[in-house]
Every structure is written in C-alpha cells, then in structure tokens.
C-alpha cells in the first residue's frame, strides 16, 4: 500500500503540474514566447537603426538593456493569468488546488520564460550593439539571473491583479513600474559596475539588495495571492 502524501508533497506536486500545464499550453500556442521574442527583436533593431553608425556610451547601453527587459516582461508575463480568465478556466483551477500551489506554479513558469528571454536579449545585445562590453562577466551573469527572478516575482503578482481588471493591457506596466523601479535601478547600477570592470565583491551590496527584494516580494505575494484569487 502507498503511504498517504504529506501536505507539502501534495502542494509540490500540484505546483509542478500547474507549471507543466502552462508549459504544454505554451508549447502548443507559442503565444508568450513569440510575443516576447518578436518584441525583443523589434526593440533591439529599432535601437540599432536609431544609432546608425554612432556608438552610444556604455552607460546608456546598460540602461537601455533594462528598458528592453522591462518592457519585454510587460508584453508577455501577464499571459499566464489573463489566459485563465479568458478561457474561463480560473474557476476550475480554484476548485482543483490551493492558491499557493497555483501561485508558485505560475511564478516558476514566468521565471523560466523570463530567464529564457533575458538570455536571448543579452545574446542579441552582444551581437548587434558593439559598444556594450562587459568586463566583469560574473557580476553581469548574477545580475541578469537575480534581475530575472525579481522581475518574475513582481510581475506575477501584478499579473494576477490585472487579470481581474477590465483594461488588462494598458494597466500592466502602470501598476508594475512603481513596484519594479527599485529593482530596475539596482540592476542598472550593477550592470554599470560590470561594464566598468569592478571586482565581484564591489557589487555585494547590490546582490544583497536584489536577494532581499526577491524574498520580500515572494513572501508578501504568497500571502496575498489568496485574496486576489478567491472570488
């Protein structure tokens, strides 16, 4: 006879199935992936055309990198929750499993999406914008990783909020921007450090900040998600 599952095992299993469900439906329609990829390609080509043969200072380019990442996140990450409302499957999900399992499943999905898109953005950036030279790659990689996690954490909870509102598209960046601004400013600062060739330990303050931001936002979201999700 199989042992009955502990509560946390059940929770883990449901959040993994939520993630897999979203993953499969994403692979079937490729809605978020194509939107995000096309957004990044369009934005970076506009930047390249606008610059022409000029080369922008590296400070400006590291700021612009986060502008591209922010708006890319805004164009694709709300999909997970908005799709549930549009398909009318939110109610079914509500019956099936606990809110926190749903939250963490969706968060994990957005995180994977965000890390994929950011890697792609950085690759395009490195190929097309020759002025962008990273001297300390360890700082840069950690910043991109922590920045992706932080962006996914904040935008998941805001996406859950706007999925219930009437004007879904326009409201998303409006609500996210004040929440994400501390994160973006820190990431821009850390990216600048990486391009200036600072040592890894000079960016410790930025990393501590990013980690605590992620912990606070994820904790608050996991507590508050229940109130958004339950009608």
């Amino acid at each position: 006879m199989r042992k009955p599952e502990a509560a946390w095992q059940q929770w883990l299993r449901s959040s993994i199935s939520i993630f897999r469900k979203d993953w499969h439906s994403e692979l079937r329609t490729r809605y978020a992936i194509s939107a995000l990829v096309m957004f990044v390609v369009t934005t970076i080509s506009i930047m390249v055309f606008a610059l022409g043969s000029e080369s922008a200072p590296v400070d400006v380019l590291s700021g612009m990198l986060w502008v591209v990442i922010f708006f890319a996140a805004m164009s694709g990450l709300s999909r997970t929750f908005v799709a549930e409302e549009e398909r009318g499957t939110a109610m079914t999900l509500q019956l099936l499993t606990s809110p926190s399992a749903i939250y963490f499943g969706k968060l994990f999905f957005n995180l994977v999406l965000m890390i994929g898109v950011n890697t792609f953005t950085v690759l395009l950036y490195a190929i097309f914008l020759n002025g962008f030279i990273v001297k300390t790659s360890s700082i840069f990689i950690i910043t991109i990783a922590l920045g992706s996690i932080g962006l996914a954490a904040s935008s998941t909870i805001i996406a859950a909020i706007i999925a219930k509102a009437n004007t879904k598209g326009t409201l998303y960046p409006v609500l996210s921007f004040p929440i994400l601004l501390p994160l973006l400013l820190t990431c821009i600062n850390a990216t600048r450090l990486a391009t200036e060739g600072a040592f890894l330990n000079e960016a410790t303050g930025e990393f501590q900040f990013l980690v605590s931001y992620i912990v606070v936002v994820v904790t608050a979201s996991s507590v508050l998600f229940e109130y958004i999700w339950k009608d």
């Binding site: 904040s154 909870i157 805001i158 909020i161 219930k164 509102a165 609500l175 004040p178 929440i179 601004l181 501390p182 994160l183 400013l185 820190t186 900040f209 605590s212 931001y213 606070v216 936002v217 608050a220 979201s221 508050l224 109130y227 958004i228």
Partner: peptide
C-alpha cells in the same frame, strides 16, 4: 480587495526605494 492587495505590495517595496536612492 485588489486595491488593498496592491497597496500592500507597494508598501513592502517602498522601503527598498528609500534604501537604494
């Protein structure tokens, strides 16, 4: 409830701002 949740999320991220600026 959504407005309340949003104001709480905004309030928990505000201190970071005071620290980072």
């Amino acid at each position: 409830s959504l407005a309340a949740v949003y104001s709480i999320i905004a309030a928990v991220t505000m201190p970071f701002f005071m620290f980072i600026m």
